[in-house]
């Protein structure tokens, strides 16, 4: 079970979190149909570092961006959605 460092709550067990989707599979409201279909039905399954959207559902409920290595489960960064790695806004 992963240990995820929530920026609000500190280190918490994975069971408190819900994986939403790879960050690149977020479908914008005005997404073009071919892109939408790709993001819905033909997602890549990367081996290695990947940016993912998670939610601390059974904690503070915030949406989080995780930089996680799918190969060895190393979590390189946990950011709030809208935040960049250098602390700025995205």
């Amino acid at each position: 079970m992963l240990l995820i460092h929530c920026p609000h709550c500190g280190p918490r067990a994975q069971a408190e979190f819900v994986f939403e989707r790879p960050l690149e599979s977020i479908i914008q409201i005005d997404e073009a149909l071919p892109d939408l279909i790709h993001k819905l039905y033909s997602r890549v399954n990367p081996k290695g570092p990947s940016w993912e959207l998670w939610r601390h559902t059974y904690g503070c409920q915030s949406w989080l961006k995780l930089h996680r290595d799918t190969h060895n489960h190393t979590i390189h960064a946990v950011l709030e959605i809208g935040q960049t790695q250098d602390g700025g806004d995205a």
Binding site: E20, T57, W63
Partner: peptide
């Protein structure tokens, strides 16, 4: 509830 949060925070912040 989760969907509303997703739309508000992720799609239309």
């Amino acid at each position: 509830s989760a969907h509303l949060s997703y739309v508000r925070k992720v799609l239309a912040p």
